[in-house]
């Protein structure tokens, strides 16, 4: 009896190594502990064993069962391991490069625009939008720049043919369509739609009939801001721009106002900055923006009472700011979109 059990265990031990699949394992298992298995048969012989011998016999059987179970576990573990190995394939080489596309990138002009929006949002300005096709009224007349005024020469303009008809750009009367020369038209349309207080910035694409060179482009991008409320002062304007430029160009950035002329502001200023963070520029004053207090005529054009309200407006070129903060020397890089350029700002 004992010999028989030893035989079964020994045979199982010798055969377990041949088991490599789940089906093989089940057959192997059936041969030993299945209903007709060799070990099952021995166990069935228990009845014939003398009563006094039963405890010893039982012990032997249990030992054999334990041995066989250990073999089963081992076989199953190796089958599972083989299955997983098959599922996984060869090990990775962590040093191999990924064959997939690299990161995408946001265009530097978009990044600068978003940074400007983010800074102004901190102080309560939200983004307003308008169309790129505009009309003479909203681009000029409402901004105190009448026809036949030399100020219109400051912005050489692209016009659309006289019979052009836009369904979603409204006209005041029968004025011509044009491509906006600044985003100030957004300010007019925003004021016409609502009441003060107004606190908006309007980033967007503008157009001027400029020949393309290192610093000019027929289309370019601007951000303009408008603030209308009661008792707004020149000092408030200075405070906002000082805050903005320090956020944008780093602590210690200073600005100065210079008198200037814009038809839509009075008084008007140009803004220079000086920043020690931009080593390329040294300590010189660099022109960066235009601004001023909203011209009372502009308020009249949109139906605001110039006695009750005051406000300021400012504007700056996104390309110019991007060129300054990134140290880019030619505006055409922005429009060529060489990936070696774009990826530098990823």
């Amino acid at each position: 009896m004992e010999e028989e059990l030893n035989q079964i265990v020994a045979s199982a031990q010798s055969q377990v190594g041949l088991v490599s699949t789940r089906a093989g394992f089940e057959a192997f298992k059936a041969e030993i502990t299945g209903p007709n298995g060799s070990l099952t048969k021995v166990m069935k012989g228990m009845g014939q064993v003398a009563k006094e011998d039963r405890p010893a016999f039982g012990k032997l059987i249990n030992e054999a069962k334990t041995s066989v179970q250990a073999l089963y576990d081992k076989a199953l573990a190796s089958i599972k391991a083989a299955e997983i190995a098959e599922r996984l394939g060869p090990a990775i080489d962590p040093s191999l490069p990924s064959p997939d596309s690299g990161p995408g990138s946001v265009h530097p002009l978009t990044q600068v625009r978003e940074e400007i929006c983010r800074i102004f949002k901190q102080i309560g300005f939200t983004v307003a939008e308008g169309t790129e096709v505009e009309t003479e009224y909203y681009c000029f007349d409402a901004l105190n720049t009448p026809k036949d005024h030399p100020a219109r020469d400051l912005q050489d303009t692209f016009y659309l043919p006289d019979d052009a008809d836009f369904a979603n750009v409204s006209k005041k009367t029968d004025e011509r369509y044009l491509l906006r020369t600044h985003t100030s038209s957004v300010q007019i349309r925003t004021m016409l739609k609502g009441e003060p207080p107004i606190r908006i910035i309007s980033p967007g694409r503008c157009f001027r009939r400029d020949t393309v060179d290192a610093t000019h482009s027929a289309n370019f991008h601007q951000v303009e801001g408008l603030y209308v409320d009661k008792n707004v002062t020149v000092r408030d304007l200075k405070a906002i721009l000082d805050y903005f430029f320090e956020q944008l160009l780093g602590k210690g950035t200073t600005t100065r106002f210079r008198p200037h002329f814009f038809p839509y502001t009075e008084p008007s200023f140009e803004v220079d900055f000086s920043s020690r963070h931009l080593a390329k520029l040294g300590s010189d004053w660099v022109e960066i923006a235009g601004c001023g207090m909203v011209e009372p005529e502009v308020f009249s054009a949109v139906g605001y009472d110039p006695e009750a309200y005051s406000g300021f407006a400012f504007g700056m070129g996104i390309e110019r700011i991007a060129m300054i903060i990134y140290g880019i020397d030619d505006i055409r890089y922005f429009y060529q979109n060489d990936q070696r350029f774009l990826k530098q700002f990823a």
Binding site: D100, S101, G102, P103, G104, S105, V106, H107, L109, T110, E132, F158, L179, R205, F207, S217, A218, N219, F334, Y335, N337, Q339, L342, K343, A346
Partner: peptide, 14 residues
């Protein structure tokens, strides 16, 4: 689109 590995470009309107 940036998350889908695209690079943003800016081209002329005209």
């Amino acid at each position: 689109l940036v998350g889908q590995h695209f690079c943003e470009v800016v081209n002329y309107t005209l």
